[in-house]
Every structure is written in structure tokens, then in C-alpha cells.
Amino acid sequence: MTTSFSHAPSLPIPGRRLPRISLGLLLVLPALTAITLLYALPLIRSLVTAFRDGSGAWTTEHVVRAFSLYGRDMLFSLGVVSASLALIAAMSIAIAGYLTLGATPWAVRALRWLYRWPLFIPFVVTGQLARSFLATNGMMNNVLVETGLMASSSAQSFLDWRGLVLTFAWKQIPFVTLLLAGAMAAVEQSHIEAARNAGAGRLRCLFQIVLPQAAPTLWVGLILSLVAMLSVLSVPMMLISGNPTMMTSMMAHRITYYGDYGIANALGLFSYALTAVTAWFYLRLTLRREATR
């Protein structure tokens, strides 16, 4: 998402300066144009649309209406996303921690092989899988009833916020784990050994030595997951019928049924704000870390 431009060192000879700058500009131009046309302009356009009424005058009406109509959905989205992130963080720390500190080689090998599979399954398919797994007469309840762990009368559908959280987590845990396990593997083995030598068990090593050093990567993984979850349409559409639901569903609804880009964009504004806040937190965190280094 970020691009860095490196400037060729320009000589302080006035006659040579101009051609060099224009050459550099020429080299950068294609990338710059692509970014401007494909990312910056649509983004600004959608922001502007959120604040314009039908006649093109400035207004905050869309935003106000978006909040009054979909305030509950926003809170719902926030809740689902937070719960998913908590679950993703807990599980990826557990898996990556075991991969890094596990004492049983065959178990580590098996886990390393298994955990990546959901990475290769698209969100749509994940939604479908979750649907047939979590429904009232889905696979999960069938198994529970058949093994006698649950009475068939108490079977209930998980196709609500719980289904969303589980599905998002199922899809995103491998991704975050992949990043986190890489970062944990990069922590020097001697740091872990020094801690164990000082008297720390494996669990303490994980939370006090390995995780603090790998935390920036965990944040990146969680922020990318947040963005993914806020932008997925298929999963909430497939799992949730009725209200409240995720904002993507509502945005799609607004556009397909009413052609109302104003409110859809005002809803989008909320997503931007949410990701921007997390990104800001992350940047602050890494900057502070760089400063103390």
C-alpha cells in the first residue's frame, strides 16, 4: 500500500539540475498516476459524496441519517469485529506460541501443516461452510445430538453474531498466525533460553519474552484482519438475515435497492474512521518503539 521513492542524488550544478528532476519525475509518473487515479480519486470522491445532496450542495444530512438509521448496525459491526479480533488474537498467539515453544516435535509438525488450510479458502466458500456447519440442523448440532451431548430440542442456530465471529476468526486466524509465527521464529533462540534459564516456564516465555518482541507484527495482522472483516460482504449476507447486521450489508442494501450513494458513503466513512484510528494507534506504537531503540 505504501510506495517509497528514492531520489537520485542530484548534483549542485545548476545546468544539470533540471533534466535530472524531470527524469526522476518521468520515472515516478506511471506509479503516481495509477495511485492517483485508482486509489486517491475514488476515495476522495466517495468522501465528497457522503457530504453532498442530490443537487450538489454541501450537507451533513447523509451522515446524520446514516447514524440514525444504522446506528445499531454500526455498534453491531463494532462488537462483532472486536470479538473476532479478540478471538483471532487469542488463537493465533496460542498456535504461534506452540509452534515456537512446543516441546513435542510431532505435534508441532502436525500443527504447522494443519493450521494454514483456511488461508486458501475464499470468504464466499467460508460463508457457505459456516452456514451448513452452524445452522439449526447443521453439522455441528447434528454431531452434538448424535453423540448424545445435547438434546435435539435444545439445538439452536448459530447464524447470528456468534456465527459471524466464528467465521471471521476461522478465516483470519491462519493469516495472523502465519505472520505471528514468522515474527516469533525471528526472536533469537538465546533470548528464550536465557529466560528459561532464569526460571521462566514456557508460558511466561511466551507472554513476557516472545510476544512483546513479536507484538508489532501481531498488530499488523489484526489491523489487516480488521480491514478485511469490514470489507467482506459475502459472509454477513450469507449468515445473517434481518437486523442488525454488518455495515457492508447495509451499504450494499442502500445502493442496490435505493441507489442511495450518499448514505452508503456516509456508512463507508465510519469504516474509514475505524481503520484510521487503529492505523494511528499502530503507527504511534511503532514510532515509540523506534524512538526507544
Partner: peptide, 28 residues
């Protein structure tokens, strides 16, 4: 296991924990 042995090892690379200050390293 190593954490129960109460031996004190100094590693060739020193293995000081970079996310802790000097005092935190010593006090851990």
C-alpha cells in the same frame, strides 16, 4: 527442565532482552 535447574548461564551473545530496560533485565 531448564527453569527448574537454578543454574545461571551467560550466553555468548549475552541474550539481553531488547524490550526490557537494564533494570528490567536484571530484575526479571
Amino acid at each position: 527442565p531448564p527453569e527448574k535447574r537454578e543454574t545461571a548461564m551467560v550466553f555468548q551473545s549475552y541474550a539481553l532482552w531488547p524490550h526490557m530496560s537494564v533494570a528490567e533485565n536484571l530484575g526479571y
